[in-house]
Each structure stands twice: as structure tokens, then as C-alpha cells.
Design a binder for these strands. Structure first.
Lengths: 141, 141
DNA sequence: TTGAAACCATGGAGCCGCTACGGGGTCAAG
DNA sequence: CTTGACCCCGTAGCGGCTCCATGGTTTCAA
């Protein structure tokens, strides 16, 4: 399998594959006589694993640690639990702040209806008022 | 006002203030005889405006556009509405994907209870299964 | 057989929004 | 005269790619 085949099979960009190799996530494949990378089934599986973890928004460093566990199955898995727990906590924190942001933006958007000059734009007024530390629909607290 | 005073007044890091200047968001201030930056009230207000927009998670580029509107109040504000609408849409999309992620992580976490060897870790099994394209508690679709 | 298109290689820069670092100049108090 | 707090500038680093320039290789059709 050449790098383009692997890319097609996994939906991962060629440059990204090379990046994962440089980052130490994907083992260096063998080379054809002409220097082209020659991948095998194990690379495909490994890459699928990495992409699945990325779909779960795990940083590459966490994936590295998970791959260590795959390589050393006799180790304790407490760290894996912790990794997932921490990730979950961060996701929930981010959810909370995004929910707050959503309502702030919605309030801000409600300040301006149709097109008119920026001078009378409620959104801009709100933002400028906030810059003066005054009450602001999008930043009440 | 020197940069340290401005930093204290706004809660913005000194390096960040210089960065905003270099990025063209904060106008270049005058200088004292010794070369130190000399800020005035308008800089403080502008910086507060920027930070408020950043609190709303707007990218610097959007803030630049908003500042253009502040400077040219005769322009139509339709772009402002669009800017906020787009931001709102992105926030909502991110909320949806984070909500999905949360339940996936929770399902994943439920696969593994207490400490044991990684070989029997349900989380790792799920992730490896996913790499093979099999059904996966954290990635059902 | 030639030549174009599609593939592959490498190394390096760019993206965002900072943050940190290194190596210096300035200034007031003790 | 030294200490420390402040300021200057330029550069590099973070994560996770993405894009670029430059050049070699393969594959197909004319």
C-alpha cells in the first residue's frame, strides 16, 4: 500500500499521515526501492485507531499514551480511566461555557434587526457600551 | 499611562497588549522620551472593547472588522448581523458535536470499572474494535 | 518514444492567539 | 552603586495540521 492508497482507505490526508509519522504516532513503514512508503494492514488499523481517538477529540499526546497501553497490555488501566475522566470533565466544562456564550450571542443578535447604518446598530452599541463597563445584554452577570 | 498601567487597568497581559498592537488591533501609542509606550483613555476603551469581543470568543479578524464599523459608522451594519449570525451558528454546531462527544465518552467510560490490566480494559477494547470498523459503544451511528 | 498527468519525496513556512524567553535599556529607592 | 521593577525588541514555541516549492517516479495515451 502506498501512502495515497492508505489515505484513500482511511480518509486521512496524505500530509496528515506523514505528520503522524513524524509525530511518532504511526510507525515508520518500509520503503519501496524508489523510496516510496510501503504500508501494511497494521498501519491501516493503527491509523484507524488514531482517527477514532481524534474523532473523540483526544490530543495526540493522549493517543500516544493509549497506544502505549495497546503495546503493553499487562499494565494497569487506571490511567486510561483517568484519561477519559479528565477528557469528559473538560468537555463538560466547555459545554457549559459554550452554552453561556450561545445565550450571550443570541441576546446580542436580538439588539439589531434589519439593515441600517452602523451608527444605529444595536449590536455595535452594546459592544461599545461593554467597553465602557456599562450594562450589556450580552454580558450580564 | 504606561503599558503596565494599561495591563493592570484592563487585566490584559503586557505581552498580549503588544501582540494586539502588532496585529493591528490596537493603534500604536505615542512614546515617552525614553521610548516607553504612552497610552491614553482611548486605548483603554479600545482594549476593553477587544477583550469583550474576545470573551465572546470572536477571532481577531472579526474584531478588526467590528473596529472598522466603529470607525465608519455610516456603513451598513448588515455585515455585523451576518458576523454574529455566523458565530452563533458555529457555536451551536460546536455545542451539538460536543454533546455527542459527551455521550460517547460517557459510554466509553462505562466500559471499564475498576483497575485491572489493560488487556481486559473495556475502553481499550472499544477503541481497538472501532479501529477495525466494528460496532463501538462510543461511536454508534 | 515522448510527453503530460498523477503520484511520491523532502524540508520549511504559515495558521491562531497568545506565552515565554533572551538580552538588553531606564529609572527610582536605599 | 547596587538592587529591583519596569520597559524595549525580536524570536521561538504550543497543537494539529495545511500548504508550498522543488524535484524525482510512475503510468498512461498519442
Amino acid at each position: 500500500m502506498r501512502i495515497g492508497d492508505l489515505a484513500k482507505a482511511t480518509g486521512v490526508d496524505i500530509e496528515t499521515i506523514r505528520y503522524y509519522e513524524k509525530a511518532g504516532l504511526l510507525p515508520e513503514p518500509g520503503r519501496e526501492a524508489n523510496g516510496y512508503r510501503a504500508y501494511r494492514q497494521e498501519h491501516l488499523e493503527r491509523l484507524a485507531f488514531i482517527r477514532h481517538c481524534r474523532a473523540l477529540d483526544m490530543p495526540l499526546e493522549s493517543i500516544r499514551r493509549l497506544l502505549d497501553f495497546v503495546a503493553h497490555p499487562e499494565a494497569e488501566c487506571g490511567d486510561i480511566n483517568r484519561l477519559i475522566d479528565e477528557k469528559l470533565a473538560r468537555v463538560q466544562a466547555r459545554l457549559n461555557s459554550l452554552r453561556a456564550l450561545e445565550s450571550q450571542l443570541a441576546a446580542l443578535r436580538a439588539q439589531c434587526g434589519e439593515n441600517h447604518s452602523a451608527r444605529e446598530c444595536g449590536i455595535l452599541h452594546e459592544l461599545v457600551a461593554a467597553a465602557h463597563g456599562e450594562a450589556c445584554a450580552c454580558h450580564t452577570k
